[in-house]
Amino acid sequence: MRQFRIGDQIVEETAPDLQPVLERAYEGRQRPLCLCREPPVAMYIARLDGQYLVKRMPSSGRDHDPACPSYEPPYELSGLGPLIGSAIQIDDATGTAMLKLDFSLSKRGSRAAPASQSQTSDTVRNETSKLSLRAMLHYLWDVAELTEWTSLWAGKRGWGKVRSNLINAAKEMTARGGALDEILFVPEVFQTEDKAAIATRRANALADLHATGRGPRKLMLLVGEVKEFTAARSGQKIVIKHMPDFPLMLDDGPWRRANVRYEPELALWRSDEGFHLVAIATFGISSAGMAYVDEIALMVVNENWIPFETVQEHRLLARLAGMRRKSVKGLRFNLARDQPIVCVTLPEQRPSPVAMYIVPGGASAQYERALAEMIEARPEMTPWVWRSSDGEMPPFPD
């Protein structure tokens, strides 16, 4: 049970008068302090959908006690580490994350040109000064707490919950001088009986994308689940699951490059109908009213919407899915596949949190050295290492 100090008052998060207390603190710009540790850890108050919430400062999760719900693994263990302070800058006063993007949100000409090879490679290079499209998706997923799981949430995380968390996460971010939630479109849950109203709300949300004369055309960010790719006369038609009546077109060049870049993700998705394929894309609307994709990145998630990259990661997540204790999935962001990251963290494990690593078969000596350095740098965490070339998954720590 969390307790907060606000001014000279100590309140519990389940107190019946918490909302009035938070409202006064929000208006008075008072910062709550989480009492899970001494000295207390600074937090901030966010107002979302008329409710006041106490939230951890971005990238401060490691400062909380591992038993505190606000704890999160050290960001140095994932691809987030190199981005903090450069591509992602946190405003200490508001908790807002100011993002530097490595992709465009505008295009010139009557139609967005196919992404160049260099643009496509931006989604995988080890860049620390800007967020690639894939890293943007990973950061949204991370801040939305969609990397966290406990069996108590089973059956409670569908697309509606995913969408709500993503939109609320975007409200805590800015990019190119504006609020990220104003340029992010996440389709609402599709219901046949509400089809016309959904289409109207979507048209209103995308009104600024329609081409008007010459000059740069605005692009927006889309995050949605892919239902299918189908061949078109030129390129591919992408059908997003919750907006089947609003396909997006992708030219041949970007589609070929996406097939090469995301071959592992596409192969995993096609191997099991229980897997979801999440796409993030920059997109616009042509003068003819057609929606088109400029750049795209893909991510595979399991039935609980937890991202994974390999069969071994999926097996580990399946083992952890039944545990009542929280697990947190590590994400790659801008890091290349040949660089180690923590796969999963068990923050509530005793006597110390567990950092779980999966070493791919044929890992290089450089990979092993980098892994050893990561483990050595976090002596307060118990390492668990599964070398997939050795065969079966090793036992979990007691």
Rank of each mutant, 00 (worst) to 15 (best):
E303T: 13
N334G: 04
R337F: 05
L317A: 11
P347L: 03
V300G: 11
K329M: 13
V311D: 12
V344Y: 02
W305R: 00
D338A: 12
L331F: 07
V300C: 13
H314L: 15
E309C: 01
V301P: 02
T345C: 09
P347E: 11
I306Y: 00
E303C: 02
L346T: 00
L317E: 01
K326Y: 12
P307Y: 09
M323R: 15
N302E: 12
R337W: 02
A336E: 15
P307N: 06
P307H: 10
N334H: 04
F333E: 06
I306Q: 13
E303V: 04
K329D: 05
L320C: 02
R325T: 08
A318G: 06
E348D: 13
R325I: 04
F308R: 06
N334K: 03
N304T: 02
V301C: 04
R315T: 07
L320A: 05
P347N: 08
D338V: 09
K326A: 14
I341A: 02
P307G: 11
N302C: 04
N302T: 03
A336H: 13
R325G: 13
V328N: 06
G330L: 07
H314W: 13
R325H: 10
Q339V: 11
L316D: 04
R319Q: 14
K329C: 12
K326W: 15
M299N: 04
F333N: 03
L317F: 08
R324D: 14
G322D: 13
Q339L: 12
L346I: 02
L320T: 01
L298P: 02
V301A: 05
V328K: 04
G330R: 06
L320W: 01
A336K: 15
C343Q: 01
A336F: 05
W305A: 01
R325E: 12
A321D: 13
V311R: 14
A336G: 14
I306A: 02
V301M: 03
N304Q: 07
S327G: 11
P340V: 12
N302F: 06
K326M: 15
I306L: 15
E313R: 07
L298N: 03
P340A: 10
V300Y: 14
K326T: 14
V342T: 04
V342K: 01
F308V: 02
R325N: 08
V342P: 00
V311I: 11
V300W: 11
V342E: 06
L317K: 05
V301F: 01
